[in-house]
Nucleic acid binder design. Structure first.
Lengths: 188, 188
DNA sequence: AGCACCTATGCAACAAGTTGCAAGGGGTAG
DNA sequence: CTACCCCTTGCAACTTGTTGCATAGGTGCT
């Protein structure tokens, strides 16, 4: 629903080509709005047709020509208005939450716990990646210009979300591990 | 991608009609996997065609007949296997995160902060709803059967996710409010 | 010169999710 | 008896997101 606006934000930060935007959405921007190159190209075309963006073909050294997009005055207005509108409630869909809720229907509870450990490791890795980005991109966060402060704070949100998952998985795993230990003790 | 499996989990918990499943996905189950009635009906039809589910038409008092679905042995196997498979990485898409990252492009920073306060209130309300559900459905969580323990723990994940958002929004708002106060002090 | 690979862009088909609408049964009020 | 509302199910079209594939330019190697 908001890919257009995510593209507007990214392009306002810095004009870019479809290819460059695809890379951005695979990395930093992609941590809170992901999109495939095909979706990005199709949406850019529609936004240009609607007058939200302008584009310029730029020859490159040793590479094909590239199409650099920028936000038009119309697009600036549309983005400014969108930024203060309350967002629609984003429906949540989590495979992991569904799996853990249904874990008692697995053949093997241990297999589910192993899967949960693997997921915990992935969330840990993601949190570590965010922290590394924070340290690298914002070594001195006390005195940032407004736009950088926003990027900094939103990146910290990423860390919080990962920490939330890690805390949950820790609780889930330790509760089940304690249960399993209690069952084994009772069987002694 | 996993609506089929979410339906399998919900139906293994208790057989239900499409209408009843729609209500479940609007409420408790919907907190981590949401779906519209149309998607649910279409997916149920496909799952029955594929042999994952069985259904029985049940007359009702004062209401039209209803179609009660249950999981077939084939469906049970498919679910059991899915539960231990590592989930695909769920792409994240957050309107709110995009808005806050792009806040410096708004006409009015105060408008964005107001929107953020509204979002904070919504997350607070959602966390409170989860807590109330926890208190009501699991007054004594120390000695739950396995399946109920899973439902209890996953519900607590919901609380953690909301608390993560609240913590982030608190930081975002207080940081910008301090900045605004600092600017006003400097103008004095 | 030709081939393989990389880069940048984009078409087409399909899947997932949503919206709008509709059909038919049951019950109630006028 | 009729009209309206509720309930349950489901069709169709559209939007969003994904996958697979393709085109064309540029470079390097054989």
């Amino acid at each position: 629903m908001a890919l257009e606006h995510a593209l507007l934000v990214s392009l306002r930060e810095r004009a870019a080509s479809g290819s460059e935007l695809t890379r951005r959405f695979d990395k930093s921007f992609g941590y809170f709005w992901s999109a495939t190159h095909q979706q990005i190209y199709r949406t850019l075309a529609r936004m240009e047709a609607d007058g939200w963006l302008t584009s310029t073909v730029v020859p490159q050294q040793g590479k094909p020509d590239t199409k650099v997009y920028d936000v038009s005055p119309v697009g600036e207005k549309i983005l400014a208005a969108w930024l203060t509108e309350p967002p629609a409630t984003t429906p949540l869909r989590s495979d992991l939450a569904v799996k853990l809720r249904g874990a008692s229907f697995a053949d093997d509870r241990a297999g589910v716990l192993d899967m949960a450990r693997g997921q915990r490791a992935e969330h840990e890795a993601r949190a570590a990646a965010y922290r590394q980005m924070l340290a690298r991109q914002f070594p001195h966060p006390e005195d940032l210009p407004d736009a950088d402060l926003d990027r900094y704070l939103v990146l910290r949100a990423g860390v919080r979300v990962e920490e939330g998952w890690i805390g949950f998985l820790d609780e889930y795993l330790s509760t089940h591990e304690r249960r399993a230990a209690g069952v084994r003790a009772k069987e002694a």
